[in-house]
Amino acid sequence: MRELCAAALPANAWNWIAVWRRNFLAWKKVALASILGNLADPMIYLFGLGFGLGVVVGRIDGAPYVAFLAGGMVATSAMTAATFETIYAAFARMHAQRTWEAILYTQLTLGDIVLGELAWAATKAFLAGTGITVVATLLGYAAWPSILYALPVIALTGLAFASLAMVITALAPSYDYFVFYQTLVLTPMLFLCGAVFPVAQLPNVFQLAAHFLPLAHAIDLIRPALLGRPAGDMGLHIGALCFYAVLPFFLSVALFRRRLMP
């Protein structure tokens, strides 16, 4: 049993890099379209909602609504980019394209592959989140240089959501099942975690629920950084995101083992 675990877990600390580089090479061929695609959606929300609703809402906690929204959109874009990379692109590489199968015939383990895919998804999340941060900063809605604190959190947020999505990828028989994850998990999180309005507006039960959701922790770190304010409970938020990055990783590796090595 111990040997079988060893067969599935990462073999060493660097094997995953080869997987990351494979995905990077593929991405380079379509980089421009990919960047625009990943940025357009959150940007539309940021400025559409920000300026449109901003007129009605006015200021929140002393900040213009666009500036308040920026932190939420940065975290959300990291969540979406990491999730989509994992449930669509990584699923294709695991399933239809048989890329993982080819890799498993080398000296890489399933753990190496999953780790490489997570790192890659986190990279794409980082690019998306950072892109929006830069635009918001250039337009004067985010504070320099405190946005620098947000950057590692964006990457960690990407890692946590990629890891969660990897469990879904391991379980889903086909693409059709991903819609449920999007509509039943991601979209509610958007409204429960304070991305577009403060969590304090929610009934108490929902406020309580928000404490357990990774997006809430990401926003609680990213928003203050963008607004140039000190963040509270940093250890708790970082710990929660790490928890969501690590635990689903091991779970997904176990599930993939059952699925791919019957």
């Binding site: 080869a18 494979r22 000296q107």
Partner: peptide, 25 residues
């Protein structure tokens, strides 16, 4: 050599070999 081809279709011949060699370190 597996029963079903699992080459990287979006890569060139050379890139396929390059990427695969990296899996062996």
């Amino acid at each position: 050599v597996p029963q079903f081809d699992n080459l990287d279709l979006e890569f060139t011949v050379r890139e396929n070999l390059l990427v695969f060699g990296r899996y062996f370190g």
